[in-house]
Computed example of a mutant assay.
Amino acid sequence: MPMMTTAKTTFDTPLARIPTTCRGGKMLLIKVITITPGRCAGMSRAGGEDAAIALLRKMGLTKVEAQIYMYLLAEGPSTLPKIAEGLSMHRPQVYTSLRRLVSKSVVESLGGKPAVFRAVDPEVIVKMFSQEISRLMSDALEKMKSIKSRGGERSVGIWLMRSYEGALAKAESLIEKATVDMAVCGSPEFIMQVAEKLYQAEERGVNVYVLVYSPPGVEFSREKLEKLRKVRWAVSGDTLVVIDSRLGVLTQRRGVSPAAEYGLIIEEPVILDYILHDFFSRWLRSRVICDRRVRLPTKFTMHRLALLEASRLADEGVRLRARIRGRWVRSGKPMSIEGELVKPVIDLTTGLAHFIVKARGKLIKVGGPDAIVEDGAAHLIELASGGGGEDD
């Protein structure tokens, strides 16, 4: 009995050149599979076509419907029999899919015997899809925002987001929620992406501090950055947004490690305080791009940045009053004082950083949230022009 094997050849291999062989008196038959030029061209386009079909699937089309649409784009107006033959599909399957495509306004039909079908322009269907998605997103977001969790909200902890893009989107959303102050660090691309939101935050009265990092020799446009009040440049860094000392997002810059494709949502006060310490140190070491004076009156939750601004104003001869809320270090009870800001102290050698405020008939030292040696620990600092006088 003849033995059969299969040899694959390209479309331009002449059949006459394919040898036949005898083994032990038995004929070896060779079955030839030819590959047409069209199929080869299709293989070279596979990547782009796969992406197009993936998009169509996201738009609610089945795989068969997506294939039919792509066929009509490539071949132009066609009849049902021609489509079925071209895609090697059964006519009933094509008929059902065409009806659905027409009902979804993805394919147009021309009556007659036989009917003719053609693909709607891709830009039109993408626009229709975008509009529908926008409507769905708006309705869904409104509904989801109205849902109140029965378990309440957890106010502390470090949450993991297993998506680099998701973490960046979360960081961007935080910018819109800032009410007092904000520390931002990121690549030029990220800072440019959120620049408009940073401008809007400053317009709301938020004190915004931006560290943009890029390696030496790598140029980036500073025009948009210079519209902000506080921007400095550093050689390296990670993507960070901390708002009001209560919420932050941190993700390692891309390319450092393949495993670093995630972000941390930080609601733990101790960790946020450590991160802000590090941000402050980087800020002092970084090169100034723009550094405009804060507008009074103003507020801070970020203690060291408040001290930095108060020191600058004091050096310029501006007399300040301070209203500070927080806790008394020894008793742990709530603290609220107001009076003349006598001196802002930043000692980088010892690490001491505090305000000296004349209030309640004495000088009171107020440190940051982690204060130990001072009289008070500040959670919110308000600075205004004018000295003298004390609170009751």
Rank of each mutant, 00 (worst) to 15 (best):
M1R: 08
M3N: 08
M4Y: 11
K8Y: 10
T9N: 05
T13F: 07
P14V: 08
T20R: 07
G24H: 10
L29P: 01
I30W: 03
V32H: 04
V32C: 00
I35E: 10
T36S: 09
P37E: 06
C40N: 04
A41Y: 02
S44V: 09
R45M: 07
G47S: 08
G47E: 04
E49H: 09
K58L: 12
L61G: 13
V64I: 14
V64S: 11
A66D: 05
Q67P: 00
I68F: 09
L72P: 05
L72Q: 06
A74M: 06
E75P: 01
S78L: 01
K82R: 12
K82I: 00
A84D: 02
G86C: 02
S88L: 07
T96L: 04
T96M: 00
V102N: 03
K104I: 01
G112I: 02
P114W: 14
P122K: 03
V124K: 15
I125M: 04
V126G: 02
M128E: 15
S130F: 12
S134K: 03
R135K: 15
K143A: 12
M144Y: 12
I147E: 11
K148Y: 06
R150S: 12
G151T: 04
G152H: 06
G152P: 02
I158K: 12
M161W: 08
S163V: 11
K170W: 11
E172D: 09
S173T: 14
L174K: 14
L174G: 13
I175G: 06
D181Q: 03
M182N: 11
C185H: 04
E189M: 03
Q193T: 14
L198G: 09
Y199S: 14
Q200T: 13
A201T: 03
E202L: 02
E203L: 11
E203F: 07
G205E: 12
N207M: 13
V208P: 00
Y213S: 13
P216Y: 03
G217M: 06
E219A: 10
F220I: 00
L228Q: 04
R229S: 11
K230F: 03
W233R: 13
V235E: 05
S236A: 09
S236V: 06
S236T: 09
D238M: 07
V241G: 01
D244Y: 06
R246D: 06
V249G: 08
Q252W: 07
V256M: 09
S257Y: 02
A260N: 12
Y262S: 14
G263K: 03
G263N: 00
E268R: 02
P269C: 01
I271P: 01
D278Y: 03
F279Y: 15
F279R: 14
F279H: 12
S286N: 14
V288F: 00
T298K: 11
M302V: 13
L305S: 07
L307H: 11
S311F: 06
R312M: 10
R312V: 10
L313H: 02
L313Y: 05
D315Q: 15
D315F: 12
V318S: 06
R321H: 13
R323I: 05
R325E: 10
R327C: 05
S331F: 04
G332L: 03
P334C: 06
L341K: 00
D347W: 04
L352Y: 08
H354F: 12
I356L: 10
G361A: 05
L363A: 08
K365R: 13
P369V: 10
A371V: 07
E382N: 09
G388P: 00
E390G: 14
E390F: 02
